[in-house]
Amino acid sequence: MNNDDELNKRFEDNKRMVDAGNVDWLKQDFIDGVINGTKIDAQKMEVGDRRSYENYEAAKKASVGVEKVSHYAKRIIIDPKYQVRSKKIVATVFAGLSIAIAGGVLVTNTVDSYKLDDAVKDTVGYISASEHTIDAHDPANPGAYFYDTSAIARDIVNTDDFEDNVYGVYYRFKENRVNVEGSMDEVFSKCNLYTDEGYASFSDYLKSKGLVDENGNIDLDKYNAQAAMELMEREKGKAK
């Protein structure tokens, strides 16, 4: 067994345990009990709970502390048995692409998600939205944040790749999953502080591109698909 085979086996064993919920202390009822204070009397704990509580405390100790910093350098292992399968998937996707283009339909799954992720994260829009996400430092709501939309607007408004940068901002906001459209509207509103050729809102921008459904409502799925494909096309153009 070579090193990658060995690591593959360890990876599989680990994922199977955690995904199957075989790590008792990570189960929701135990976590809720600890956090709500009903499982913290160590004297009265059963042996299993005590071990779980020790795991919980060890995990907390291993997780808390802003001095714990490491590069997010993922080690990617390719499992050989999946390489054959992935070739079949690629062939299927190409067949689907021909049909989809013939029907004038956008196909999101033809965009290589890994390359897309890298490309989006290189945009000024994504970087600016990440840099201008501000922690509210609200003890009652840990992790709450707000955006400096003026700074984001200033960073993207006069860039050559405005479309890609808008998508970068959208992509970052979407990762955060909170009030995406409202935050995008605010960025577009702030863009008007820096240009006379802006849009009243994100909705206005999407409608100007015809990204609406049959009822005239904005269609974010269409926007996501189109913006992703256009970004990847421009990336391919730069690489030539």
């Binding site: 600890v34 808390v64 802003v66 910093v69 490491s70 590069h71």
Partner: peptide, 14 residues
């Protein structure tokens, strides 16, 4: 750079 950093406090861990 993408970094992984520890959490701010026990409450954030919970």
């Amino acid at each position: 750079l993408h970094l992984l950093v520890g959490l701010d406090n026990d409450e954030e861990f919970d």
